[in-house]
Design a protein around this nucleic acid. Structure first.
Lengths: 255, 255
DNA sequence: TGCGAGTTTATTATATTATGATACTTTGCA
DNA sequence: TGCAAAGTATCATAATATAATAAACTCGCA
């Protein structure tokens, strides 16, 4: 985010303030003023003013002793705002709850947003890791079953571009970072209708995902199910879980 | 939010932009420019510029044909940022999942934020209404079991002030709007250690909630369980559900 | 206990930036 | 077809945010 195009309809202060808000998250759940300056690359004085404004407006909390900031409940409220506005959340939620109970395993829904996926629904089980319970989590699409399931249904050129240019990040020692290999996996998914990924984001996790298609042939979301490796194998997942995940994904007609 | 105090450390544009973002939600999941002007009371040109900025930064989506705006996945991401930063979410999540499975009913956790509560965890069941599944939902504390459970543990003067001044809003024909009556309910909760509310926010809903206390004696959250009225009665809820909810709430030591 | 690096707060003059009135264009409805 | 309402664009003006500087803290370590 270097210098923004000079446009009279663009309010730079707002953009910077949002940059600060958006800097909070996975690697930086809470930050001091100095850290915010480092992470965002913004001017120190600007951070001071913007941070103060975010605090006064109740979007950031400030620990009175450590002086560190963290997102407030007002930020969490934006999740509710999103949920009310996205018709897919409403549509998918009941069936995913059913699926979660039927399978007894963690079930999720994700949407594609640029080169990554964002989880919009999560039905956890007792054995879910904390990161696996969080709605709004963003992961690179190429290294997730949900992402691959959706990419496999993109138009050929869009698919190629995704495979060749979208970012990769290793979350696990087993994360596949070879684009050729990923291309194969996506081909498999295109053929089978669902994607299976082993240990890409959480160790010992096996995930199956199937795309939810809009009437115009675009993938709009994915239904995904995660299980643990010692208990399951990729083969059993393919044989037992994939059909049910596929069924649910296909049951939505959206558009 | 009329004219803000003239402070050199306050960036008005950012505050206005946040006002716009925050205007989205339950009654207005998506809005046109004109609606935003109406709802926020901001100047039309300002809305135009700020909205454009929010759009360009990816916090708002714009339907190309209806020209209406709605919150994007980037907004949902802020919810994830909150979850990473709030230690209570991490602490409570596993036990609430267990409790939800054990009871077979919908279980929630809420925090107090000013005069209302915000749900931070929701474990739904098949029969949950959509509003009952949404994390980040905000409701007036006085008309919820979770709110009453927490208020019942406030210091006497804070409790009195809450009962007398915090806002009330009818969500149901049965919502109690009489502050005297609410004071009684909170007294009961103070004695029993948990609060039971019938049909306050959803028709035919019975809710039990118990406060989670910090070591310093402050209520920091509430564990809550909702069930449906024809299937349950307030008496059975008190006898069968309340003890388990209380147990879980008491099992957290925080602070 | 006291020194000093590293942070957080406070203060200013300056010009960049947001402002809001106005006019123009499109849309949707009768 | 035409009108009203909504969205888009433009622009001079002054208010507003800027970033440099200085003051007041913290906290670790000797």
């Amino acid at each position: 985010m270097p210098s923004k195009k000079q446009d009279t309809l663009f309010v730079a202060s707002l953009a910077k303030g949002l940059t600060i808000l958006h800097a909070f998250g996975q690697p930086n759940p809470e930050m001091s003023l100095a850290e915010i300056v480092r992470v965002t690359g913004l001017d120190k004085s600007a951070c001071q003013r913007l941070t103060n404004t975010l605090f006064r407006e109740g979007f950031l909390l400030k620990d009175p002793i450590t002086r560190r900031f963290r997102p407030s409940l007002k930020c969490l409220e934006m999740a509710a705002a999103y949920a009310w506005a996205d018709p897919l959340v409403r549509l998918m939620m009941p069936k995913l709850i059913d699926l979660g109970h039927a399978l007894g395993e963690r079930v999720n829904a994700a949407r594609l947003d640029g080169p990554d996926i964002v989880y919009i629904i999560r039905i956890p089980t007792q054995l879910t890791s904390f990161g696996g319970m969080i709605v709004g989590r963003r992961l690179p699409a190429l290294t997730t079953s949900a992402g691959r399931a959706m990419i496999s249904r993109l138009a050929p050129d869009a698919r190629r571009e995704a495979i060749e240019t979208w970012p990769l990040a290793a979350n696990t020692h087993a994360t596949e970072l070879d684009r050729g290999r990923i291309a194969e996996r996506i081909e498999e998914a295109a053929g089978a209708g669902f994607a299976v990924a082993v240990g890409q984001n959480i160790i010992n996790e096996i995930a199956v995902a199937a795309p939810v298609m809009a009437r115009d042939g675009t993938p709009v979301a994915a239904v995904q199910c995660s299980v643990s490796a010692p208990k399951w194998t990729a083969e059993r997942v393919t044989a037992e879980l994939a059909p049910q995940v596929l069924d649910v994904a296909n049951s939505f007609n959206f558009g």
